[in-house]
């Protein structure tokens, strides 16, 4: 996870944002570059259907706020994730409902069609999904943000800190706490191997 930030791309991103001040269409390049991953992040939390709208909205908001982007405070990618996470915040109840449904759902039901994971992974994951969903549902909003930004968006700690506007050290301590809770929620089972008791 946590691929190191690609400095040349980041610089290029920031330049695109600034260019879009006067040449709005430059912003479309950022859309092409990041829409899919923003969509995946949102879809993981709220489902594909809502993600269609919300990921698109992320770029509309970013476009409108493009003059407020400050390259001194981080790269474009975490900035976009920050906007997406802010938009997600209005859907926390929906996310919680989704986690509740996932907790109760028979294994596998919650998956969208077209999932590419191997059947084996899906089965084992499905067997623990209820416990996992229950544990995530109990996390605070801030902890949940950190978890999904690391697990789904593959952001580095530094990027998560930029995304959420929190100190670097807080990211690590939050993630440690989250992992502890998830492990406990899973009952000490290694989710990728065991899980028959899920």
């Amino acid at each position: 996870m946590a691929a190191p930030p690609d400095a040349p791309v980041a610089a290029d991103d920031a330049a695109l944002v600034e260019r879009s001040w006067h040449d709005p269409e430059s912003f479309a390049v950022l859309y092409d570059r990041y829409f899919a991953e923003i969509h995946r992040y949102v879809a993981g939390r709220l489902g594909t259907h809502l993600a269609d709208d919300l990921a698109a909205e992320t770029f509309l908001v970013a476009f409108r706020k493009r003059r407020t982007f400050d390259p001194d405070r981080g790269a474009v990618r975490p900035w976009l994730y920050g906007i997406a996470t802010n938009l997600l915040a209005d859907h926390r109840r929906r996310e919680t409902r989704g986690l509740e449904a996932l907790r109760r759902a028979p294994a596998g039901e919650a998956f969208d069609g077209g999932h590419e994971d191997s059947v084996a992974t899906r089965v084992t994951a499905a067997s623990v999904q209820g416990r996992l969903a229950a544990a995530i549902r109990r996390l605070s909003a801030g902890d949940r943000d950190v978890l999904f930004l690391v697990a789904l968006a593959d952001l580095s700690y530094q990027e998560v800190a930029q995304t959420l506007g929190i100190p670097f050290g807080t990211v690590g301590s939050r993630l440690n706490r989250v992992r502890r809770k998830l492990r406990s929620g899973l009952g000490g089972v290694n989710p990728m191997i065991g899980g028959s008791d899920g």
Binding site: F35, H39, T48, T124, A125, L132, F148, L152, R179, P191
Partner: peptide, 16 residues
Amino acid sequence: ADELDAVRAVFSRPGP
């Protein structure tokens, strides 16, 4: 990262 892998497995979605 076992827990995180599990989160990925359960919550990953195909792209748009």
